[in-house]
């Protein structure tokens, strides 16, 4: 999988910056404990107001860092964890490695982004925003609680763009307690719905402790991926690895990559004679008459050769095409679709 990336460097500087962050994430975090977590339940009005005050103190930054992940065919949520725009989300939201997605900020700003690695078995994934932050402070981001010190009964809160991005409404907050813990899952009683997937679960200090994953048949059953799962495979995900097999994401199958053109050999390459409606080729603006000279640096002189090259590729793979259009050389960078 990784080797197939050698052709694609457009976003590498961003990703390299993010790699540096993975080291800074290794710094010892600040110790903090929300006092009410030591009580089995709030006992007084003062206790309730303490929960409310902590929640309201944490909300502005938590909301600024909570994003909508727009996939075109649907939306999920995510949360920014570095000033360079690294986003944590769920694997069933990102669905693939190296996929182009749009990140929508709290104020509606849309940003180009690309999915990094994911863990298909535990529903963890990373996304990198590819655009520069509006100012030197970088993107708003939240601290990741790396201490793994959350425990049963802790007060927590969920944020997410429930049912999709609605600017007037904003992200939806839900107060909850941590009601079950397992190796790869934590459960809370704050109700989630479609669109929340990939969104953040916070402790009362506003530190990220989990990512929304799925719900059970009852309202109080809401499952999250603990940040520990992310941290365990952090470097592999940063290197855009597709880790594990399903159920939250399916590995693209080699040979199923789809371009969507018909060609005939001419001098210098293959001339496009047909462009499939709605195909990746059409979406990238390839037109009849373009001559394909090479395919990821490999010369395409015969139809058979191009077929061979395509047979080694999978949906979502990056493709760099050298073409001749109106007598001029051009390079087209695109991603294959699915057959």
């Amino acid at each position: 999988m990784v080797t197939r990336w050698k052709y694609w460097n457009a976003s590498m500087s961003k990703i390299a910056k993010a790699l540096i962050l993975s080291i800074s994430l290794g710094l010892p975090p600040l110790a903090s404990a929300f006092p009410l977590n030591s009580k089995k339940a709030p006992e007084s009005l003062e206790d309730l107001l303490e929960i409310q005050a902590a929640l309201q103190a944490a909300l502005p930054n938590a909301e600024a860092a909570t994003v909508c992940v727009d996939l075109g065919e649907g939306t999920g949520s995510g949360v920014i964890v570095s000033k360079d725009g690294l986003v944590m989300t769920a694997a069933h939201v990102s669905t693939a490695v190296g996929k182009k997605v749009t990140i929508i900020m709290e104020d509606g700003t849309k940003l180009k982004a690309e999915t990094l690695g994911l863990m298909a078995e535990t529903d963890a994934a990373l996304i990198q925003i590819l655009e520069d932050a509006p100012n030197e402070n970088g993107y708003p981001f939240v601290e990741v609680n790396q201490t793994d010190d959350t425990k049963l009964g802790d007060w927590v809160f969920s944020l997410g763009h429930s049912g999709g991005f609605k600017k007037e409404r904003g992200a939806v907050v839900r107060i909850a307690r941590l009601v079950r813990m397992a190796n790869n899952t934590i459960q809370t009683d704050g109700t989630l719905i479609g669109g929340d997937s990939g969104g953040p679960l916070f402790d009362m200090d506003g530190r990220l402790i989990g990512i929304h994953s799925r719900v059970g048949p009852q309202l109080p059953v809401n499952m999250h991926v603990p940040v520990r799962v992310f941290l365990d495979s952090w470097d592999r995900m940063m290197k855009s690895e597709f880790i594990g097999e399903g159920p939250f994401a399916q590995k693209p199958e080699i040979g199923k990559g789809f371009l969507g053109v018909g060609t005939e050999p001419v001098d210098g390459g293959l001339e496009i004679t047909k462009v499939g409606k709605g195909s990746p080729a059409e979406n990238e603006g390839l037109v009849v008459g373009d001559v394909i000279k090479s395919f990821n640096g490999e010369k395409t002189e015969t139809k058979e050769r191009m077929k061979e090259l395509l047979a080694e590729m999978a949906p979502g793979d990056k493709l760099e095409l050298e073409i001749i259009r109106d007598g001029k050389n051009e390079t087209i960078k695109m991603q294959l679709g699915s057959r």
Binding site: V179, A182, T185, R214, M223, P247
Partner: peptide, 15 residues
């Protein structure tokens, strides 16, 4: 369907 994939949770770890 996804719930079926969740890890086994022991009773002690349930609030």
């Amino acid at each position: 369907l996804w719930l079926a994939c969740a890890g086994v949770v022991s009773a002690q770890q349930s609030l």
